[in-house]
Computed example of a mutant assay.
Amino acid sequence: MTASASSPCITGWHHSQFGKLDGIDPEVLIGQVAKAAIEHAGLQPEDIDSVHVGTFNAGFLYQDFPSSLVLNTLPQLRFKPATRLENACATGSAAIHSGLQAIKAGESKHVLVIGFEKMTELATPQVGEVLLKACYAKEEAGIPGGFAGVFGKIAQSYFDRFGDQSDALAMIAAKNHKNGMVNPYAHMRKDFGFEFCRNVSDKNPYVAGPLKRTDCSLISDGAAALVISAADVAKAMPRAVQFRAAVHVNDFLPLSRRDPTRFEAAELAWKKALGDASLTLNDLSLVETHDCFTVAELLEYEAMGLAPHGQGARVIAEGITAKDGKLPVNPSGGLKSKGHPVGATGVSMHVMAAMQAAHDAGDMQIANARYAGVFNMGGAAVANYVSILERVN
């Protein structure tokens, strides 16, 4: 989607607490964020033309087919079209794109996008088995360590080619945990510091390959919602954060068909998004990127163009992506601190970026933020989504 005065705008949002949300029915969680996002946009439920729900599920919950669950809380949405979207860890962005397409097609003026996941109903080993369904099962389902094992293989391949990157990964983890300290929605608001993240200990053991516990995102519950509106009606609303670009690029599913040390489709998505937005990387005020594992953020530095292939470590070492750096990355704390409820993640990242663009991010706020980038991926850089947001109202 190329930037233009007619590009859809985010006009309302809401974000639940992320964490281990015991005793909260997912149906109630969905209803809460949906109702609050509609109110934030200054609308009534009957103003919503279509509903787009993102959840991975794949066995986290028995209840599947969730598209109409929100109607139980908001009966005014009865008879509106509602669809469930899924694209692994980029499920939330898939739901956003579905909503954008409904607006671009002229079928909707206001869409409600909901992302949610309830992961902690299962024990950790079972969670790992569910997440492995997002790999290429024929070749990768037997990898020890679950999806951490997939990224452990990626990290080991990168280390073998470019040297031990443990310092860089620990710096990324420490940065994101420090940033997450001021995110009221974050699952883990604790500043671990570089030394703890760098060293193996009883509380920070190896999980898969060279990846330690502090290199892995959290198993979390949570939900987030957005209202997206057509540009012509958004101009009269209390706030409007425009999509200057919204790009989706997919790659091969098997790692065996790709270079595991490069996120090539992510690189293509970034180039296309910046071109569509008529911007360069230097124009961005911040980026919320998909740090499901610290090695993913390292490779994403290279994919977005902050460093040549194999030199991502210098980006974090030089403080470029620190909160006060040239391009702050994950001022929210990222998935590493905020948590990673799979279906909620892409919507959450867009909420965080919209808050920044609207100068409504509280203690997370980047001064004078204008353009906010988002990179959300499904699988190991298989489904790649890049958005660039700008406040217009």
Rank of each mutant, 00 (worst) to 15 (best):
Cys89Gln: 09
Ile143Asn: 02
Phe162Met: 03
Phe18Arg: 12
Phe151Cys: 07
Phe79Leu: 10
Phe263Gln: 08
Ala41Phe: 09
Ile388Asn: 05
Ser285Ala: 12
Lys212Phe: 01
Ala155Gly: 14
Ile30Phe: 04
Trp13Tyr: 13
Gly275Asn: 15
Gln156Lys: 14
Ala296Tyr: 00
Arg239His: 14
Phe263Trp: 11
Ala90His: 03
Leu29Arg: 11
Gln76Lys: 15
Glu267Gln: 15
Glu390Trp: 05
Lys109Thr: 13
Asn176Ala: 05
Ser7Pro: 05
Ile10Asp: 01
Tyr158Asp: 07
Ala168Phe: 01
Ala353Asn: 06
Ser157Asn: 13
Leu61Pro: 00
Ser220Val: 07
Ile320Cys: 02
Ala141Cys: 08
Leu169Arg: 14
Glu129Phe: 01
Asn176Pro: 03
Arg213Met: 11
Met355Trp: 07
Ala307Pro: 08
Ala307Cys: 13
Leu218Thr: 08
Val28Cys: 01
Cys197Lys: 07
Ala224Asn: 02
Ile103Met: 01
Glu46Ala: 15
Pro238Gln: 06
Asp221Glu: 02
Ala134Phe: 00
Ala168Gln: 06
Glu318Cys: 06
Ile316Glu: 01
Ile143His: 02
Glu302Leu: 06
Leu122Tyr: 03
Thr124Leu: 14
Ala223Ile: 09
Ala134Trp: 00
Leu71Asp: 03
Cys216Phe: 07
Val287Gly: 05
Lys109Ser: 13
Val295Lys: 01
Val233Gly: 00
Ile388Glu: 08
Leu71Gln: 15
Gly222His: 09
Leu132Cys: 11
Glu86Cys: 04
Gly319Glu: 08
Ala82Met: 10
Asp64Arg: 05
Asp324Thr: 13
Gly305Phe: 13
Lys133Trp: 00
Gln356Ile: 10
His309Arg: 12
Cys197Leu: 08
Gly193Leu: 08
Tyr206Trp: 03
Leu71Val: 14
Gly305His: 09
Gly146Asp: 05
Lys178Ser: 14
Gly163Gln: 09
Arg84Gly: 07
Gly312Gln: 04
Gly31Glu: 07
Tyr301Ala: 00
Gly145Trp: 08
His15Trp: 04
Glu117His: 02
Gly128Phe: 06
Ser16Asp: 09
Val247Tyr: 02
Gly59Trp: 01
Asp167Gln: 13
His97Arg: 15
Ala155Leu: 11
Phe194Ala: 04
Pro125Phe: 01
Asn176His: 14
Asp324Glu: 10
Ser348Thr: 15
Asp191Thr: 06
